[in-house]
Each structure stands twice: as structure tokens, then as C-alpha cells.
């Protein structure tokens, strides 16, 4: 048998796959609108603060942190869709025929998810800067001082929830199921943790809603980091790994 050309035998580079996955996030109406809504809502947070917040709170860090909220809530949905839509629309058939190394495809989805959360953080920073400039003449504090540690922590906050979305999507492979479970399960757990006495210690360590709040305060303590690591393992790493195993084994039809 004649040897196959390297163009055929060599794996598709991860960079190229990531470009494809980023493109897929925005090339359907659902994905594009989700991105537009995130941009508008982020701008909306600044408008809200300019109009109604205390003047002392009209500072760059305040605009920046509040501006993260829409993407923290909605980007995970984009992460879920990037996986589950392949199954609901059955494009996975084409995706895995073009790239039989399924792990690489999922890897590219993860990288694309991280990149999009970086972009969301950058967007929040730009819009916060604009809002700060506007706040000055309007009598706001217009302070620019942002604790440096908050930049990295904000990025991490975004990435953690996007990856959690991708993890739930990969594990459940169904859009409605993944979205409901993504939003409902952590909330149920938070409620249980605060109501049931015997669960309160466990919930301190395993409630990602709670442990991730530390990321919005400058200079996290060691204890806060370990609690975040433990809860992120449970809510992000485990679903992601289990989901990858499921997809690698699954029959596609």
C-alpha cells in the first residue's frame, strides 16, 4: 500500500481545532445572540452603576467587578452549548469523522472556552475604563486603583464557570438537561448547606458558589485557595474527566 501523505497522517494541530471551535461559538444565531447579549449586559452593568450607584462606588474596580457578572452567568451556557449542540444537531458525526481523535476536539473546546473567558474579562475591563472616564465629570469617585491580584482572580472566576459548563455539557450531552443541572444543582447544594447543620462544614469546602466569591476580593488567603481548589475539583474537574471518558467511549450515530 502506498504511504499516506503527511497531510493525511499527521493529526490536526490543536491551534487549528481551537480556531474552528471559536468560530463555531459565533457562527450560529443562538451563539451569536448569546455573545451579543453578554456584551450588552456588560455595558448595562456600567450604565446601572453610573445612574444609580453611590458616587464612592463609581470607581474602576467597582465597574470592573460588577461588569463580570453577566459573562460569569452566561458564558457557561455558551460552554454547555459548544458541546451539547454537537449532539442535539448531530454535527458530532461530521466532527469526529474529520477528527477521529475525539480527545483533541474536546481539548480544543476547553481552550476555546478559556480564551473566550479571557476576552470577556478584557471586555469588562475596557467597558469599566470607559465608565470610569464618564464618571469623573459626573461627580463619581473615578478612582483607577485596581488591586493587581484581582486581575488574575477575575480571569480565573470566568474560566472556572466556563469549564464547569463544558464539563456538565460533556457529561450530560443534552442542552436542556445540562443547563438545568448546571444552575439548579449548585443552588440546591448551597441551600442544603445553609439549612442542614451537619452539612455546613462540607458545604464550606464543596460549595463552589460560596468558595468562588473569594475570587472577587483582593489577596485571597491560603485557606480560601484550598477551599476553591477542592470545590472546583468536585464541580469542574470531575464532571469534565467523566464527560471526556463518556465521549471517548460513546458510539456516534
Amino acid at each position: 500500500m502506498s504511504a499516506l501523505s503527511p497531510a493525511v497522517s499527521r493529526p490536526v494541530p490543536l491551534g487549528r481545532l481551537t480556531v474552528v471551535e471559536l468560530r463555531k461559538l459565533a457562527d450560529t444565531r443562538a451563539g451569536l445572540w448569546l455573545l451579543i447579549v453578554i456584551v450588552l449586559a456588560t455595558a448595562g452593568t456600567s450604565v446601572l452603576q453610573l445612574g444609580w450607584a453611590d458616587e464612592s462606588e463609581q470607581s474602576f474596580p467597582a465597574f470592573f467587578l460588577f461588569g463580570q457578572v453577566p459573562s460569569a452567568v452566561l458564558l457557561p451556557v455558551l460552554g454547555i452549548l459548544s458541546v451539547t449542540s454537537e449532539w442535539s444537531q448531530r454535527t458530532v458525526l461530521g466532527t469526529f469523522t474529520l477528527v477521529p481523535a475525539r480527545g483533541r476536539v474536546l481539548g480544543a473546546k476547553v481552550v476555546a472556552g478559556v480564551l473566550i473567558s479571557v476576552a470577556a474579562t478584557a471586555l469588562a475591563a475596557i467597558l469599566a475604563a470607559v465608565a470610569t472616564v464618564i464618571a469623573g465629570p459626573l461627580g463619581g469617585a473615578a478612582s483607577w486603583r485596581l488591586e493587581p491580584s484581582l486581575i488574575g482572580q477575575s480571569l480565573l472566576l470566568q474560566a472556572v464557570f466556563v469549564l464547569m459548563g463544558i464539563g456538565f455539557g460533556t457529561l450530560l450531552l443534552s442542552t436542556p438537561l445540562a443547563i438545568v443541572v448546571f444552575f439548579a444543582l449548585p443552588t440546591v447544594w448551597s441551600v442544603l448547606g445553609s439549612v442542614v447543620k451537619s452539612l455546613s462544614t462540607a458545604s464550606e469546602w464543596l460549595d463552589l458558589n460560596f468558595t468562588s466569591q473569594a475570587l472577587t476580593n483582593p489577596d485571597m488567603t491560603g485557606g480560601e485557595w484550598s477551599r476553591l481548589a477542592v470545590s472546583a475539583t468536585v464541580w469542574v474537574v470531575i464532571p469534565l474527566v467523566a464527560g471526556v471518558v463518556r465521549v471517548l467511549r460513546q458510539e456516534v450515530s
Partner: peptide, 27 residues
């Protein structure tokens, strides 16, 4: 082409596959 399909890195350049025409993203 003498190789197990899953061992091809970039099979699209060697094998064209159409298993289900409906399996494309409607959007």
C-alpha cells in the same frame, strides 16, 4: 487506504464521508 480510520490524523484529505445528510447544524 491500508490504515485503520481512527489512526488517520486528518482523514478528510483522504476519505470523504457522508453518513447522514441531516446531521448538520440547522443554524
Amino acid at each position: 487506504s491500508g490504515v485503520e480510520y481512527r489512526r488517520l490524523g486528518n482523514p478528510g484529505r483522504q476519505i470523504g464521508v457522508l453518513l447522514d445528510a441531516s446531521a448538520q447544524h440547522a443554524g
